[in-house]
Nucleic acid binder design. Sequence first.
DNA 1: CTCTGTGAACTCTTTCACAGCA
DNA 2: TGCTGTGAAAGAGTTCACAGAG
Lengths: 221, 221
Amino acid sequence: MAGTPPPQTIPEATVARLPIYLRSLQEFAADENATISSGRLAELAGVNAAKVRKDLSYFGSYGTRGVGYDVRQLVVEIRRELGLTHDWPTAIVGMGNLGRALANYAGFSERGFSIAALLDTSDDKVGTVMGGTKVSHLDDMEGLVERHSISIGIIATPAIAAQDVAERMVGAGIESILNFAPTVISVPEGILVRKVDLAVELQILSFYQERRATDAGSAAG
Amino acid sequence: MAGTPPPQTIPEATVARLPIYLRSLQEFAADENATISSGRLAELAGVNAAKVRKDLSYFGSYGTRGVGYDVRQLVVEIRRELGLTHDWPTAIVGMGNLGRALANYAGFSERGFSIAALLDTSDDKVGTVMGGTKVSHLDDMEGLVERHSISIGIIATPAIAAQDVAERMVGAGIESILNFAPTVISVPEGILVRKVDLAVELQILSFYQERRATDAGSAAG
DNA sequence: CTCTGTGAACTCTTTCACAGCA
DNA sequence: TGCTGTGAAAGAGTTCACAGAG
């Protein structure tokens, strides 16, 4: 009985949207006890209202019929679901252009991710300071991971180095990896990898753009 | 009969994987007339073999039973599907850390995307050279878009500026936008937008990482 | 009367499993 | 015998549509 009111499984697709809802709610700012309807949140998040309601229902968020959702409460609930109630120390490996951009990206710390370690193998970079953090040598990763309880690693190296870095991360105790290198990395079971490939996104755009040109005359909008 | 062998619709999910296959094939390098099986390609791309076969079947790619796919031919076919048979001039708006990283990112040009224009509004940046291209003022975008036939725009500005930039892009004739700003932009119908939010990816990792800690004892792998 | 919460229908995607060609 | 190509089954995710709370 009673037992499991919010089914222990939030669909992946929903999880991927929670950060967007969170961001939208925070932009929506809102005074102390503002409420927001699924329709309005949907608009801000760029999805449709039914989806918002269904998504929020998975973790038993109580909206009020005829009124909407309490913004403050919703923010708290989503943050809890996302595990954003505490800070996540991260390590970035690869201090090229992208790594430097990431190290300087304010958006990370704003959302609960601190940069606990920057790592590279090049003597040119080790010892310099980027985004307020000193760059350490990759060989020192293990100690840093332990000392700072780092559980998320970010790979911003060239493709060729990515697999090796991933293995070192796993060896150092990192359990989740965000991979920006344009290659597939393989990791042991239980290690979670997400990837972002900047050029892949462009190629997807290219597909639809090309098709638009090819499907002559088919209304684009 | 014969008529329309490749059904005119390639599923979105498949389109999103084609760039990965392409990259995998190119890494696989291969001498003149190498072949590759769906199983091997699946391994390289990090998916399963049935998916590879189904994906490739959508555009009528002829593999050879008992042998596999001709690597060279497959590369040509995928590139054609993705519209990568010609160069795509792009414009990057926002020369902060991320914009600079993108401007210097070799992966774009390697895959057929050239940077035809870099744009910013800050006097500090306009006139400087980044990644071999001179930074122009955002006000000059329209002329540059026309002159270089730019159809893809990349937004790398702070969130606050993104909607305005998107509107200027559309006004200048750009039809596809890759948005790195952490906000939803709205555009007229017919304009294609894809978004990449670096912090969102971290938040998704955070969800699963947190859950792993919470689901005490449940095997992670 | 408004707006949530949610079964049910529908659509998209993945996976299975095997016929058939080389 | 090995591997592709593909229907058909299974599984996810989305949307509909409406009962019912406030």
